[in-house]
Amino acid sequence: MTEVLQNLNDNLKKQVLLYGKILSIEERKQKALLANNLQEIEVTTGLEEQLLLEAGHLERERLSWAEQIGQALGKKPEDLTLAELAEHFPVLQEVRLELEQVVGSLKEIHELNTQLLQQAMKIVDFTLGMMTHQDKNTYTHPGRKEKDGNKAVHLLDWRV
């Protein structure tokens, strides 16, 4: 059991480091969002995708270790929490705290970045609406057709 436990601990430490890298990329992306630097947003998104693929690999590996530990404890791996494992195996306590801290920080910055992106999309929608002089969004009522007499001519007609 100690080898499996050590492998799980090592895996979790790798996840802490990886999520730390993702956190720094999210911070970099936030600066790019504030500066409206589209090229930097694209670069950071690409880097983030690569790291998320690696995180998926580590998570699959973690599940295999958790499955082995779960069998020893008589529980399914998806029912085991890290807090519960840390109670049974105090060696996991430190990595649990580190993981909670980095994931919490990542969640906060991700929520802020999501809000920034939503605000940017509202600005784009507003700008397009102004450019096309549309009274309403053509995507509000899918499938509903306008009468020929009510159609307005716009600089850009972006109806599909």
Rank of each mutant, 00 (worst) to 15 (best):
K151T: 07
N36K: 12
E27S: 02
N11Q: 12
K122P: 06
V124F: 10
K147S: 06
D125T: 05
A32M: 08
I22K: 05
E78Q: 06
H110I: 11
E67S: 08
V102H: 00
L116R: 13
Q93C: 11
I109Y: 00
Q115C: 06
E87G: 04
Q119F: 10
R60S: 12
E100P: 00
T45Q: 09
H88Q: 12
N137F: 11
R60T: 10
T114V: 14
F126C: 07
A86F: 00
K151M: 11
S64M: 12
L82Y: 01
L112C: 07
E78I: 02
I41P: 04
L155M: 09
E27I: 01
Q93E: 14
G46S: 05
K31V: 12
K107D: 01
T140L: 12
A55Q: 00
G46W: 00
D135R: 14
Q71D: 10
Y139Q: 15
Q15S: 02
V124D: 08
L33G: 04
V124I: 13
R144K: 11
V43N: 07
A152S: 15
S24R: 10
V16A: 03
V43G: 03
L8P: 10
T81N: 07
G104S: 06
K151H: 09
L17Q: 15
D157E: 13
L106D: 07
I22A: 06
E87M: 10
L85D: 02
N150Y: 00
N137K: 12
W65D: 05
K31T: 11
L33Y: 04
K122Q: 09
N9M: 07
N137V: 09
Q30F: 01
M1E: 13
S24A: 11
L12C: 12
R62F: 02
T81K: 06
L63A: 08
D157Q: 12
M1S: 13
K147F: 09
V95M: 02
K147C: 06
H133P: 13
S64W: 12
Q15W: 01
R60V: 10
T44F: 08
E111F: 03
G149E: 14
L106C: 06
E42P: 05
E78C: 05
K136T: 08
L51T: 05
L99M: 01
D125Y: 09
A120H: 09
Q68L: 08
V91R: 13
I22V: 10
L18G: 04
E54W: 02
L34V: 15
L58C: 03
N37T: 02
L38G: 13
A152K: 15
A66P: 09
E49D: 13
A120I: 07
E40W: 03
A55I: 01
G70L: 01
Q101N: 13
R62N: 01
L8I: 13
V16H: 01
P142C: 00
L18E: 03
V103P: 05
Q15H: 02
N150A: 11
H154E: 08
L97H: 15
L58D: 03
L12I: 14
Q39M: 13
G20L: 01
